[in-house]
């Protein structure tokens, strides 16, 4: 058989077919709402985010510190053993400079690019990356391997969501950063020192 010997189905329509009413369509705009239960592991993860901390779960069998936390280890197929605070710093595993929104619409000319990244969080097992955003950085200065730190919402504004972390920003100020930004970075450093208590509580419930 050859495809060329058949008359193939599939009739391509153009946008003008709809505009001019050459073809008729039926529309439906669903109004569905879901409320997802967060579960045991992610419930605690979110509660800790509200407190400005990142928590993981440890599996004593494979020795992984898992982020996001989970109540069972999918590799060992046994319960995980322990809560484990990790740092709010990490390393950029990879990143993108996105001009596209979730629905494929484009960012406007005045809208900054979105900077999604996979960030390997310090204290979690190597390679345990999470999806989050980068900020306070010029897109062209982002590098794989860059050290970053979480920038949190103010305590009163946190809701117990992944977005309680606004974004991650470079720890060492980039060389060409204007002075105003550099001082904001310095201020943040003091703040994070206070938060390192959470780090001291590592491994404790």
């Amino acid at each position: 058989m050859k495809l060329e010997d058949f008359e193939l189905g599939g009739t391509n329509l153009k946008s003008s077919d709809f505009k001019q009413g050459t073809v008729l369509t039926t529309e439906w705009e669903p109004d569905l709402k879901y409320a997802w239960d967060n579960g045991v592991a992610i419930g605690r993860y979110l509660a800790e985010l509200k407190e400005g901390r990142i928590i993981a779960r440890a599996c004593h069998s494979c020795k992984r510190i898992m982020l996001p936390p989970r109540m069972f280890c999918e590799l060992c197929f046994r319960p995980t053993d322990e809560w484990f605070y990790v740092q709010d710093t990490g390393t950029v595993n990879t990143f993108s400079i996105a001009r596209v929104n979730w629905d494929a619409s484009r960012r406007g000319p005045d809208e900054p690019a979105l900077l999604p990244a996979v960030i390997e969080i310090d204290g979690a097992s190597k390679g345990m990356g999470i999806l989050h955003m980068l900020g306070e950085v010029e897109p062209e200065e982002i590098r794989i391997g860059m050290k970053v730190r979480a920038v949190w919402k103010k305590p009163g504004e946190r809701t117990g969501a992944i977005t309680d972390i606004l974004y991650f920003k470079p720890i060492a100020p980039a060389r060409h950063t204007p002075p105003a930004k550099a001082s904001a970075g310095a201020k943040k450093k003091v703040k994070t020192k206070a938060r390192s208590k959470a780090g001291a509580a590592r491994g404790k419930r």
Partner: peptide, 14 residues
């Protein structure tokens, strides 16, 4: 993931 990723409004292209 509806809790840990969707709030960041990801697209597959990301």
């Amino acid at each position: 993931d509806h809790t840990t990723e969707q709030p960041l409004k990801p697209t597959l292209i990301w």
